[in-house]
Design a protein around this nucleic acid. Structure first.
Lengths: 187, 187
DNA sequence: CGGTTGATGTCACTTGGTGTCATGAGCGTA
DNA sequence: TACGCTCATGACACCAAGTGACATCAACCG
């Protein structure tokens, strides 16, 4: 018999998600989350850097997916085309988890501190995308601009995707957003 | 004779800027900042919502400038052209304060919490720009995309401007960034 | 002159976050 | 079987951010 219940981080995430949704982020203490998971406050902070981070554990994987896909894109593709290919792959990866994504997004939308954390994750993502583009030979500031633009497109599409009224899939929405962006920036 | 020294917020800002630069953001306590300004911790929090906010007091004015200029742009101008006109005005407004801007930016660059705050301020700015564009009759998601793109262009230009090696003025850098973006997104 | 206002101080309190040491089941090894 | 090591967790003390409640007192106003 194991000394402790398995998957402490997962239990903490689950408890946090539930409590943040129920009572709001501010009105939930770390001690409460830990208690719900059968652990202590101290253990929470061994698994997550802070109270916000518990909602953002998937971000490294997302970053990796973006980078991999951009690296794998056709050599002849321009920066935005490579990024567009990556967006397709990323959109597919999210498609099954719309329910969870929407709940998470609702919690984040209700709290500025969480929005800050979300924004810095996206900025880090943009940085990784820019690096991946530079590895394809794209120079600066083109790499930065293309990366930021890609993340903007993704964010706009994601926002529309989690909207309860929406019926389109994420892939389609990213493609539409990118198309729209190209229309705006065209002379 | 006034009961208190004048301009408490200004003194707190000045003290914070100095101490954050000297010892770093993390190693500076609010009590120390307040003491330097001849005040108490409690008074600091009456003027600024939190320890970070003291570095971001100019953001409402910047937002207002963007919005005003976009509203004043030629009626026939497209969304990105209106935004470009605003960028010119904003760039001029910054031009004299490069020294201060660079010091401030260095402090922010050294600390993730401050970067988070910076990012949410820029996001709020983008939101205001999007609203201003909608008031010009631009629809969605075009308004959002154009706004986010404008802020990205501004940020990229600003980053290059505060670089000690840079010799160009901010207005020129914003124009170059925008031009580059158009080149990237062109089919 | 007395009352009001408003910026500040004082103090107690909650909570996020950290450093340090103790605990004890699982596991390998003699 | 016994010994000792590992490592996730608990226990505890502590600091700093941030807040609520109340006190203070110069300036201002009728």
């Amino acid at each position: 018999m194991p000394r402790w219940q398995p998957d402490a981080p997962g239990r903490l995430q689950q408890a946090a998600l539930t409590l943040y949704a129920e009572r709001g982020f501010d009105s939930t203490t770390v001690a409460e989350i830990a208690e719900h998971a059968g652990l202590t406050k101290r253990t929470f902070f061994r698994h997550f850097a802070d109270k916000r981070e518990v909602l953002f554990s998937g971000s490294e994987a997302l970053e990796e997916l973006f980078v991999t896909e951009i690296g794998a894109a056709d050599e002849s593709a321009g920066p935005l085309d490579a990024a567009a290919a990556a967006l397709d792959a990323v959109a597919s990866a999210f498609e099954e988890r719309r329910e969870l994504a929407a709940r998470r997004q609702q919690i984040i939308a209700a709290n500025p501190e969480l929005q800050e954390r979300e924004l810095i994750k996206l900025a880090s993502l943009a940085g990784a995308v820019a690096d991946a583009l530079r590895r394809r030979g794209v120079g600066d500031p083109a790499a930065m601009l293309a990366a930021e633009t890609t993340i903007t497109v993704f964010r706009v599409a994601f926002e529309r995707w989690v909207d309860p009224a929406n019926r389109k899939d994420l892939r389609r929405l990213t493609r539409e957003s990118l198309h729209e962006l190209r229309a705006i920036t065209a002379h």
